[in-house]
Amino acid sequence: MFDAKVLSMLAEGIKDTLYMTLVSTLAGYVLGLPLGIILCVTGKNGLHPNSVIYRILDFICNIIRSVPFLILLIVLIPFTRALVGQSYGSTATIVPLVICAAPYIARVVEASLNEVDPGVVEAAKSMGADNFQIIYKVLLVEAKTSLMAGATITTGILLGYSAMSGTVGGGGLGDIAVRYGYYRWQTDIMVVTVVLLIVIFQIIQNLGTKIVMAFDHRKK
């Protein structure tokens, strides 16, 4: 049953899954981190409140987040095809994953930054810091561990979503599970892919938690 062909397929699946998860997390942060910072800064108690900008970004984030991922995946097919030339496979899946992740990440980042003690921000202001310095020397530094914890959770969620994209030919372990388990009734292969997904998830969580602990100086 588990001949060389299946094994290499599973190996390929692991590779694709990791590729989709990590690249979409990174790309998600490239968009979501600045977005989250802008949300925090323009928010009511932010460094530079601006209700127009805040409301527009807030609205966009809420809209995207309220569309279920599977539907987003299908709705975005034309866009994905235009961007990467095809609508199936792991690279194509990254597009909807990033679109889905960015607003989520923005929210997580906003929440982390809002948690920073306003007293510390006030102290920085009293030293003559400008808003830009406050963002990258105070907010991002003080929220460091909370941001990392958020990134760990986001990576886990994107791992799950990447597997979900298997239903429409997204590639990776989810794809294998759907093809073998759902269409061909080869339960054993499906079980193995599920176990692999669980193991990858655990590794991401544990690694993330360890890193957070190592960097947290607040309670030691």
Binding site: D117, E122, A123, V138, H217
Partner: peptide
Amino acid sequence: MIFQGFNLLEQK
């Protein structure tokens, strides 16, 4: 300026 709550950077 100094404050009641000290307001030190906890991560530094």
